[in-house]
Write a protein that binds this DNA or RNA. Structure first.
Length: 161
DNA sequence: AGATTGATCCAT
DNA sequence: TGGATCAATCTG
């Protein structure tokens, strides 16, 4: 599952001459049109159409009138699966909360639909950090109580401290 | 626990 | 057109 593989990988954001390297420490998986908690479960709309694209693109959307959330699309084409980046660690500073990291990294809708790559100053790196299975914990996803049985799935993954 | 905030969606 | 909803955060 992609959500677990992303833990321990690095998200790199270049702002001007400065590169911010953020270790991914918390993710949530949203798995296809069947997942009632996922945006893709209500069909394709202008807002979520990026989710239906191929893997490797960013899906950035706005909620609660003030927060940008960063997702990476990881399903095949026309299968709306994505991983929400919920937490990162930057030089020992832990940013827990999906809107905190987007604010810190200056991520907004201009990244929506873009492929992760250096030419948009936002990309992933595998720096060879090995994550053992027993360092990964899982739990129910946050804020999706309305999703019925899907709200109880253990689709949230994070590195133990 | 409540206020905040605005894009989006669905019902009038 | 209008009101409810929402993958969140802050303050107290």
């Amino acid at each position: 599952m992609v959500a677990q593989e992303l833990l321990g990988k690095f998200l790199v954001r270049k702002i001007g001459v400065r590169e911010i390297v953020a270790k991914i420490v918390e993710t949530e998986a949203y798995d296809g049109a069947e997942d009632k908690a996922a945006h893709g479960s209500h069909g394709k709309t202008p807002r979520n159409e990026v989710l239906f694209e191929e893997a490797g693109r960013f899906y950035v959307y706005f909620v609660y009138g003030m927060h940008w959330l960063l997702n990476i699309v990881c399903g095949r084409r026309d299968f709306p699966a994505g991983v929400l980046i919920r937490g990162v660690e930057i030089e020992g500073l832990r940013l827990d909360g999906p809107a905190k990291l987007t604010k810190f990294l200056k991520i907004d809708k201009s990244f929506n639909g873009k492929l992760a790559a250096k030419d948009i100053s936002l990309w992933f790196e595998d720096r060879g950090l090995k994550i053992k299975k027993d360092q990964i914990a899982s739990s129910k996803r946050i804020g999706v109580d309305y999703a019925g049985e899907w709200a109880d799935k253990l689709y949230r993954f994070y590195l133990k401290r």
